[in-house]
């Protein structure tokens, strides 16, 4: 039986709309216009124990809403949802005791207390036996390199340090399920790598089920075999990362910094996506032309200062997916 089961989840928010200008503000005092926003329009999926699933989609697609429903914070309008056999919002306390959640843009640590004291508070809040707590904290301190931060007030930590502490805080009660909502947002490259490495080990070695929402496709590529793509409150695709790319576009991007950015590029296998100053972005299909061959051809015709090959950003892939599905 799946550990996380979601069937036909629907959630609509009512949003007050303000009319523009001063007169609009005055009118708004008397009568508010309301608009319905369908955050989830029938989302279904199932996740087995030990899976590491990427949950992606553009802003407003309903990712965070799903996480909040799964965490028992939001009550959906309709649909079924069970996590470890419990309906999250009906048995909130029992449910959250088996759950770790990290919201990348928020912190669960007490701002004015050292991180270590927040951890001790969480030990008592989750009723973790002292011996288990000491052992887990030692492990987390070693794995996430937290030792220098334990005695520092959280407000003095850098974002990367704070996120590591937040991650540790969500794992002190050894939850079998971890929700990560944009855990790498705003982190520098090395912090991102450390974070990914840790999550991967947690999943492989401890069998912790991880549901990860992110805008960073590199997160997904580094971690997840399975992705669920959300758009407009619906599941657009549920499958492997390869199937996502293949179903949308096989394209990759070649970005080149040229001596003359306005130079026309006419290559049968490359298409210009954008130009910013001297930086030109080309799309190509690695199935038709080898990247090395394309680079050689471009470099033969133009003065190239710098270049790199990358995957189109998730927004582009999902936008294409969204276009193709809505046609």
């Amino acid at each position: 039986m799946p550990q996380i089961l979601v069937e036909n989840l629907v959630k609509t928010f009512r949003v007050a709309e303000r009319r523009p200008g001063l007169w609009g503000a005055v009118l708004g005092l008397a009568a508010r216009k309301q608009r319905s926003v369908e955050a989830l329009a029938g989302v279904s999926f199932a996740i087995e124990p030990g899976e590491l699933v990427g949950y992606i989609g553009p802003n407003g697609a309903g990712k965070s809403t799903t996480i909040k429903v799964l965490s028992g914070i939001l009550v959906p309008d309709s649909g079924r949802c069970e996590v470890l056999g419990r309906v999250p919002w009906e048995e909130r306390r029992a449910h959250v005791a088996h759950l770790g959640v990290v919201f990348g843009q928020r912190t669960q640590l007490w701002w004015d207390l050292p991180a270590g004291e927040s951890f001790e508070l969480l030990r008592d809040v989750y009723r973790v036996p002292a011996a288990d707590f000491a052992r887990r904290l030692d492990e987390l301190v070693a794995l996430l390199d937290l030792a220098p931060m334990l005695r520092t007030p959280v407000r003095q930590l850098s974002l990367g340090q704070r996120m590591r502490c937040d991650l540790a805080a969500s794992l002190l009660h050894a939850p079998p399920i971890l929700f990560l909502d944009e855990p790498t947002i705003g982190l520098d490259a090395s912090s991102k790598l450390a974070m990914r490495d840790f999550v991967k080990r947690l999943n492989r070695e401890r069998g912790v089920t991880v549901l990860l929402t992110t805008h960073d496709l590199d997160d997904i590529e580094a971690l997840c075999r399975r992705v669920i793509v959300l758009g407009g409150g619906r599941v657009l695709l549920d499958g492997t990362l390869e199937s996502l790319r293949a179903s949308v576009t096989p394209e990759r991007w070649l970005t080149v910094d040229l001596a003359d950015g306005s130079a026309p590029i006419d290559d049968p296998d490359a298409r210009v996506v954008s130009r910013e100053g001297d930086r030109v972005r080309l799309a190509f299909d690695p199935g038709r032309v080898a990247p090395a061959a394309l680079i050689a051809r471009i470099a033969a015709k133009h003065v190239v200062h710098d270049l790199f090959v990358e995957n189109p950003p998730i927004e582009t892939v999902v936008a294409k997916l969204y276009e193709s599905r809505s046609q």
């Binding site: 028992g72 914070i73 909130r92 306390r93 959250v96 919201f103 928020r106 669960q108 989750y126």
Partner: peptide, 14 residues
């Protein structure tokens, strides 16, 4: 105001 209150709801306490 910031929405961090969400974490309060994630604790197994009254």
């Amino acid at each position: 105001r910031s929405g961090d209150v969400i974490y309060e709801l994630l604790r197994p306490v009254d």
